[in-house]
Write a protein that binds this DNA or RNA. Sequence first.
RNA 1: GCCGACGUAGCUCAGUGGUAGAGCACAGCUUUCGUAAAGCUGGGGUCGUGGGUCCGAAUCCCACCGUCGGCUCCA
Length: 664
Amino acid sequence: MVTIQLPDGSKQSHDSGATALAVAEGISPRLASAAIAADVDGKLTDITTPLSDGEHTVRIITSRDPEALEVLRHTAAHVMAQAVLRLYGNDTQYSIGPALMDDFQYGFYYDFDLPEGKSISADDLPKIEEEMAKIIDAKIPLQRVEMSPDDAKAEMKKIGQSYKIEMIDDMLKETPDAKLSFYRQGDFIDMCRGPHLPDTGKLGNAFKLMSVAGAYWRGDENNKMLTRIYGVAFFDKKDLAAHVERIEEAKKRDHRVLGRQLGLFLLDEKVGPGLPLWLPNGSIIRMELEGWLRGELLKRGYQPVHTPHIGKLDLWRTSGHYPYYEHGLFPTMNLAEGEGEDGYLLKPMNCPFHIQIYKSSQKSYRDLPVRLSEFGQVYRFEQSGELSGLTRVRGFTQDDAHIFCTPEQLEAEIESCVDLTKLCLATLGLDDYRVRIGLRDPDSAKYTGKSENWDLAENNIRRVVKKLDMNYTEEPGEAAFYGPKIDFVVKDCIGREWQLGTIQVDYNLPERFDLEYTAADNASHRPVMIHRAPLGSPERFIGILIEHFAGAFPLWLAPVQAAVLPVSDKFLNYAQGVVRALRNAGLRVDLDDSPDKIGAKIRRATVQKIPYMAVVGGREVESNTVAVRHRTAGDAGAMSVESFVEGLLAEKISRGSEPLHVAS
RNA sequence: GCCGACGUAGCUCAGUGGUAGAGCACAGCUUUCGUAAAGCUGGGGUCGUGGGUCCGAAUCCCACCGUCGGCUCCA
């Protein structure tokens, strides 16, 4: 006897062995045909799983429930795997194929190890989609089968699926008495927790295979590279179309596309991969952003320093970067014999130089904290496959600073760094970010220094983020090699995560470099260091910013803030006067003196995302005004040149992106 | 670095073995124009680089360089 309670509170009794599907059928045939899965006592279950005797709460999951999409996508992965096996042969190995619910582009994937000599390219995807459609049309039921580990291994051995056997062995290490569940759909069987759609027909036709990629087995580069196929699936064809549309729209915001269109930066094959050239328009954005930040640093007691691009290799041995991170460095410069025995290194980071500046004079506790700041350019030999626009480059700037303080001052300093980082994000309206606490991985040997130091630093960070009541995740293995850190992570236009601001607590380099200060007790003590970069790097930050604003920068950052557009060149003289007035007020202005018609001039300025246009013709000359137009808000009417200047200056100072409000 | 794809004019792209094309952009001329593209004319390409096959290669093959999507990495 099975007693169930439905979400509306009503109760039903069923015979032993009844399924959630039977419950749905009892309510209405429509619900039964719409049923995707069931929530039984809070656990997602197949609708065909018999309910055990006793009392249960049951909720029928249909496509309207948020849990349903994950079930659909998971089944889509199985159907794709079945299709791939049909097309590429049963000696194709399949490893893992999860549903992706948080990815911007993809909804599921499956990783395959294809038979010797076979490969899948993007051109093959339609063929696989067709095969999937056949499987869907056949409405093959998915049957859940539970097996003992031994039976499961025997079954997988029989069909030659060695990755599955490895996965079973792994699972047994954690839970030796586990019952393993499998799903069989026709001639295809896969180990899977479930639940799944009751049959492949329920998958429908709102799915699409998106791309093929390589992926290492278990994410380990020492393992074999498998072939991963990414796809997406929805219940409704309209949702799929909207998804594809959303991706296409997002790609128009891609900073690499806008960077070219708006003349912001250039990546030139002749210069070298990952070595961006900043064009005049992009340089203005950097100049404004860095200028603003420099002002904020001075307010906070930072002192500016400048250091060279190269230094003796030995510095990096002391810091510990070399030779551990040799693969990430540009090759050492070796000089003629006898000179600089050890060679020079293009700097991968600024800290050793700042440390030498700290050491250059005796420090008293009264001097601390010492905050040395520099927009320092560093060079890292990133793997070629990693390079991406401005977000991952080989030569970039850090809005770097190193704070040297007493252990007592440390947490207040960390807190102030968090404040500054948040101010940077808030000023630019970047409010969609997450905070990651990067801790050492206790199983890895890549970290330097004593365990006690790490404990101290990790606890300093925890206390600060708790005090500030921040949302964060702790991630072991994400620390810098010298200390744990607080990272601010944002997403780009297609959902890839990038670390921007970072605050790193370091007890180790002060030891390695033997840093000291004299305390009130007249004895030498060891300072603590903070490495911090609120933007992370202007390159990456601006790359993200381009996408955030879709190239339409707020007035204070806009490379050109206003375009003066004479209706014809009869009014060029007057237009030049307007340009002078704006430039005298410190605004960046372009004059469009082309022979084009006014519509073309407006179009050009709008496409270039120039915030304001000042149209001048006979009427404006008469009344000493300009006809103002905003790039998105459109025609804003006429106003005097003086009020136009005032309006722009006010908007510039506000650092906002609100269009100028025109007094009527 | 690894898997897969791509590379033709400044940009976006067409061209699958037989004399290299379009739109935009650029230059000249005409038009002097009122809120998202006036008209005509013209210049511009060692088809990423190097090698090979072929009577003949943008097109087929190999290597390299670069870019894109992933994976790995990210001090």
